[in-house]
Amino acid sequence: MMTSRINPLLILFTVLVYIFLMGPLIIVLGASVSDTTYLTFPPQGLTLRWFENIFAISAFKRTIITSLELAFLATGLALLIGIPAAYALNRYRIKLPTWLSTVFVLPILVPEIVLGFSLLKSVAVGMQTPIFLTLLVGHMLLVLPYCVRVVSASLASFDFSIEEAAVSLGSPPMKTFFTIVLPNVRSGVIAAFILAFITSINDVSTSLFLTGPGVSTLPIQILAHVEQFFDPTIASVSVLLMLLTVAVMAIVERTLGLTFLAK
């Protein structure tokens, strides 16, 4: 019988990559439960009071809510624009100029800092819009490319003659979109939602320019906090963000399986 030999060097590299990837996370996790008033690793003592502390600091409480609101609204709006855009780009691929699909990727190609700065100049200052609205526009622009690209990828393998079959059987085009097209790109839409949501919740560069008095996002608040304090609250907030992301992924894993993200 043939046995495939595994190169010990390969094992070494694999382990190193894992340490490199997971190490920082473990350090943050350790630091967040340390019973000291400064950030340290390995943790000394064991406490959850830094997690309690997050909610004692009203700025954290506020920004967590703002971040969640922003992520949900920005992602929702981006999907509302992105799904029809992706549909049109795929459905009428032959008729549309090729640069059109590039337009929808531009926000990814433009450095986020530039996006934030230009929005600050043109929208926040130029149009005197409320801070939350400017943030919403910024985040929506930020996540729109993910929505268009991921839903597009899903639509690219969708056979549009299926849609025509439904129409020929008497289903009006709009109804067909909801009953036939959408259910078949469901996994793409969910993947787009997750990517967009996580991108929005973790964004710093764009938000940095757009937050203002009274309205901030969690990552920006973390930055502001670190500038003044060095207690483990920061670590516990980071763990909270991580848990949020893991929770989203866990839901996906349970409902769809993670493999579809690789498609």
């Binding site: 025509e164 020929s168 008497g170 085009p173 067909t176 036939i180």
Partner: peptide, 20 residues
């Protein structure tokens, strides 16, 4: 007349069944 009002049965090359 729009396609969905034409009442024509169609059979496609790639079957075009509703996968879901």
């Amino acid at each position: 007349l729009p396609a969905y009002k034409r009442d024509i049965g169609l059979v496609f090359q790639n079957y075009a069944l509703f996968p879901h």
